[in-house]
Nucleic acid binder design. Sequence first.
DNA 1: AGCACGCCGACT
DNA 2: GTCGGCGTGCTC
Length: 757
Amino acid sequence: MTTTAAHIVEVAIPLPLEGHFHYLVPEPLVPRALPGTRVLVPFGRRKLTGYLLGSAPAAAGELKEILDVLDEAPLFTPDELEFYRWIANYYLHPLGEVIKMALPAGINLVSRYRCETAEDGTPVIREFLAGGRNVRLERFYAALPDPPVKPRGKGLEILEYLEYLRESDESAEVSGADLRARFGPCTPQLNRLVELRAVRTAEHEVYRDPFKTQIFGKDQALELNEEQKAAHGRIAEALRAGSFAPFLLHGVTGSGKTEVYLQSIAVALELQRTALVLVPEIALTPQLVGRFKRRFSCGIAVLHSGLSDGERYDEWRRIRRGEAQIVIGARSALFAPLSDIGIIVVDEEHEGSYKQSEGVRYNARDLALVRGKQAGAAVVLGSATPLITSFYAARQGRLGYLKLPNRVRELPMPATQLLDVRGKKGLTFLPELVQAIEENLDVGGQTLLFLNRRGFATYLVCEDCGHVMRCPNCEVTLTYHRGKGRHICHYCDYSLPAPSVCPTCKGKEITLLGRGTERVEEEVQERFPLARVARMDRDSTKGKGGHARVLKALEDGSVDILIGTQMIAKGHDFPGVTLVGVISADASLNLPDFRSSERTFQLVTQVMGRAGRGDRPGRVLVQTLAPEHYALSHAVAHDYEGFYDQEIAFREEVGYPPFAHLAALTFSGIDSRQTEQSAQEAARLLRKIKGEVRLRVEILGPVTAPLGKVRGRYRWQILVKGRERSELHRVLFHLRGSFSHPSTIRLVIDVDPVEML
DNA sequence: AGCACGCCGACT
DNA sequence: GTCGGCGTGCTC
C-alpha cells in the first residue's frame, strides 16, 4: 500500500468539459480536503475552483497538487452529490457546472490578471484571485460593567441605552446599524466609548433577510372539506410511512390546494422533517410567504432569482445550518440545502417556468420527483390543469391521484359559454360579450378580458402589393406596437420604426390586421367610456413592481376591466372578478406545437378559474373560430377527464407518447452504413414533430471525421425549436459517414422521470 | 470556457 | 519584416 494513493482526489471543474480531474493532496491539506469542499486547483495555466468529489483509487500520468481547500466544512453532502450526479447524467451536462449552478452564486474563486505599474514605472502583470465568499459582517456593541469614565452628550445617551439593555440581559448586544437607526450617525461616539472601555465590541456574521421589516400576524388551520381531508389524509399517511410517495393533487381552481399543502407540511414538521415548496414565479412568492409565516412559527427561508447574491447566500446558509425548516421559492429553490426533506410541493406543476433554459437545462418539476425519491419524501404536484404526463402517470398508478373536484365554501364553478365567431371576423366582441360586460359594469363586477397576443396588430399587409411584413431573422410576422410606434418581432425583438413603407413596392398604405391587447384596450375604452380600463402584458408591466401595481389596482377595485395576456390567468385570487371574456381562444390553439391543445385547455381553464371566487357567481364567455375543438369544449364543460382521455388517445395515435415531455426518437445500434439512413429517418420524423425537441445524442464508439462543432465529443445534446429545425438537419447531415467502425447513435428524448423512478 | 499555438493577410 | 485574425487543441 502506498501512502500517496490515498491522497489522490477526484475534482469536478465547472467548465463545459466531459470527465473529472485528479489531483494530489499535499500532506498539510489532507485533513481538510473532504468530499464536498471547494478546492483551488491549477488548471492549465489558470487557477480555478473545483469541487472535491472524493478520493480516487489511482490515476495515470503526472498529477498536479491542490493549492488550497477553500471551505472549513463541505458545501454539499454525499446525498446532494448523488442528486447532482443524477442531473449531470440525465441532462448530459458536466457535473462541475451542475454543482456550480446548485450552489449559491458568487462564491467561487478564479484567477484573474491585472496590469499594475511597478515603482520604477514599468508595467507588471499581477495575478490575483477574484470572487469568493460573501458574508456580511457587522459590528455589535455591548455595555461593560463599571465604566471608568463616561462621556457626555450623544455618547452618554448611547451608553445609557446599552446599560439599560444589559440590565435585562447580560449578553445583550446591539448592531451598529441598529444604533445608527436609533441615534442617527454616531460612529465617532461609538469609537470613543470603545476607547474609554465603557463598551466592548465584536464582529458577527449577519443575515440579509428579505422579509426583515415585515410583520406577520398569526392564523390557524382552516376546516377542510371532505375531499381536502381525504387528500390530506393520504399525504399524512405517506409521511408517517416515511418513504418516497409521489402524488398528483388535481384540484379545480379555487378548491383550496394551498390549505392542503399547509396542513400536510404541518405533519412533516411534527415528524421533525423539513418542507420544500416550489412556485412557478417570483411574483407569487410574497403572497405565499405571508400565508406560511402566519401559519408556522418555524424558520422559513425564501430562495429565488430576485434576491441579491448576498441575500441568497444568507438564506442558503440559514438553511444549511438548520435554521429554516420550510423553504419557499422558484425553480432554483429545488437545490436548497435542506436536510431530511419530508415533503416537496410543486405548485402549479404544469407551468413552463419550472424549466431552466440556460446553462444547465433542467425542469424543477421533474427533479422534485428525483430529489423526493432520494430523500424518501412525499412529493405533491399540485394543479388545476395537470400536465398530460402527470395525469397519465396517475392513471398508470405511478402518481397517487388526489382529486379536489369542488371549490371551497361551496362556491359554484362559473357558468360558461362558447361563442362562435366564424363569419364575424371584423368584430372584436360579439354582441353577447358586449352585453355581458355592460351588465357586469352595471352591477359593479370586475371583468377580465383575455387575449394571448401582445401589441396592436399582429399582421401587417401592404395594400398595394399584398406583401406581409416578416422578421428577416425569424420569418415570423411582425407585430405593430402602437405604444412604442414600432413593428416588432416577438421572437427575436428585431424592430422597425412605424409607419413603414413596404419593402417590396415602397407603398405607404399598410393594413393592420389581427388584434393584440393594445388594440383591444383601445376598443374597450371607446365602447365603455365610463369604465376604468387597465392592461396587463409584458409591455405594460415592464420594470420592477409593474406587475404588482396592476394587480393591486384590481384588488382594491380601482379597475373595472382588465385586458391581458396569459399573465392574468396565473394563480391570483380576486374576489371582485365576476366576468371573464376570452377574446380569441384560437391564438394558442394554432401554435405549431404538438402540445397546443394541452396548452389551450390549461390556459382557458386557468383564466376561467379567475371568475366567481368571491360571493357572487362567475360567468365566462369564450370567443373562438373552433367551438367544437375538444380542448375548448371540454374546458368550458369543466370536463377534465374527458379532455385528458381524448388528449392521451391523440398522443398515442400520433406517436408523442403521453409519458414523454417531448417527442421521442431513439436510434440504437447504428453503424456507419446505417447512419445516413437513420439521419434521413430522423429528419423525416422531426418534420412531423412540432414545437420543441430536445435530443440527446450519444455516440458510443470512435468518431473519425469532424462533426462540426461537436467534434471530439461523444455525448451531447441539442435543443431544437421549430425554426431551428434546419440546425438539427445540419447536425444529422454531419453524422453521415462519420464512423469508421460500427457505432451506436442514440437519439433520446426527455421522459418524465416518474417513469424511471 | 480560457488560453496557447500556429499559420496566413495588411500594416508601422 | 511583424501584428493579429480565428481555426484547433488541451486542460489532472
